[in-house]
Amino acid sequence: MSSASRIIGVSLGHRTLAEADHWIQSLQPAPVLACTHLVSVPYPHVAISLLTTSSFRTEPSLAAAADAASSGQTGRAVRFPGVERLTGELTVSEILQRSSISRVEVLGSGPADPSTVVETGDFVRPQFRGGELVLVATPAAGGRLVPFERREPTPCCADH
Rank of each mutant, 00 (worst) to 15 (best):
P81E: 12
G82F: 09
G82P: 13
G82Y: 10
G82E: 09
G82W: 03
G82R: 07
V83F: 06
V83L: 00
V83Y: 03
V83A: 11
V83C: 12
E84G: 05
E84R: 07
R85D: 12
R85C: 01
R85Y: 04
R85Q: 12
R85I: 00
R85V: 00
R85T: 03
R85W: 01
L86N: 04
L86G: 05
L86E: 04
L86D: 06
T87H: 03
T87G: 12
T87L: 10
T87K: 11
T87E: 03
G88A: 07
G88H: 08
G88S: 06
G88F: 09
G88Y: 04
G88M: 08
G88V: 04
E89V: 08
E89P: 01
E89M: 06
L90E: 10
L90M: 08
L90Q: 12
T91F: 11
T91A: 08
T91G: 10
T91E: 07
T91S: 15
T91L: 04
T91R: 06
T91H: 07
V92E: 03
V92K: 01
V92F: 02
V92D: 02
V92W: 01
V92I: 08
S93M: 04
S93Y: 01
E94K: 12
E94I: 02
I95K: 00
I95Q: 01
I95V: 15
I95S: 02
I95W: 01
I95C: 13
L96A: 05
L96I: 13
L96S: 05
L96N: 02
L96D: 03
Q97R: 15
Q97C: 01
Q97M: 14
Q97P: 00
Q97H: 06
Q97K: 12
Q97N: 07
R98N: 11
R98K: 15
R98V: 02
R98D: 03
R98H: 13
S99M: 10
S99H: 14
S99I: 11
S100C: 08
S100R: 02
S100Q: 10
S100N: 06
S100E: 13
I101G: 03
I101C: 08
I101D: 03
S102L: 06
S102C: 04
S102N: 10
S102V: 02
R103C: 14
R103A: 11
R103L: 13
R103M: 10
R103W: 00
R103Y: 01
R103K: 15
V104G: 12
V104R: 06
V104A: 13
V104L: 14
V104F: 09
V104E: 10
V104T: 12
E105N: 12
E105G: 01
E105S: 02
V106H: 06
V106T: 12
V106N: 05
V106E: 05
L107N: 08
L107K: 12
L107F: 13
L107V: 13
L107C: 07
L107S: 14
G108L: 04
G108C: 09
G108E: 06
G108F: 06
G108T: 09
G108W: 02
G108M: 07
G108S: 07
G108V: 09
G108P: 10
S109A: 15
S109N: 05
S109P: 00
S109M: 10
G110M: 05
G110L: 08
G110C: 11
G110T: 10
G110S: 08
G110Y: 02
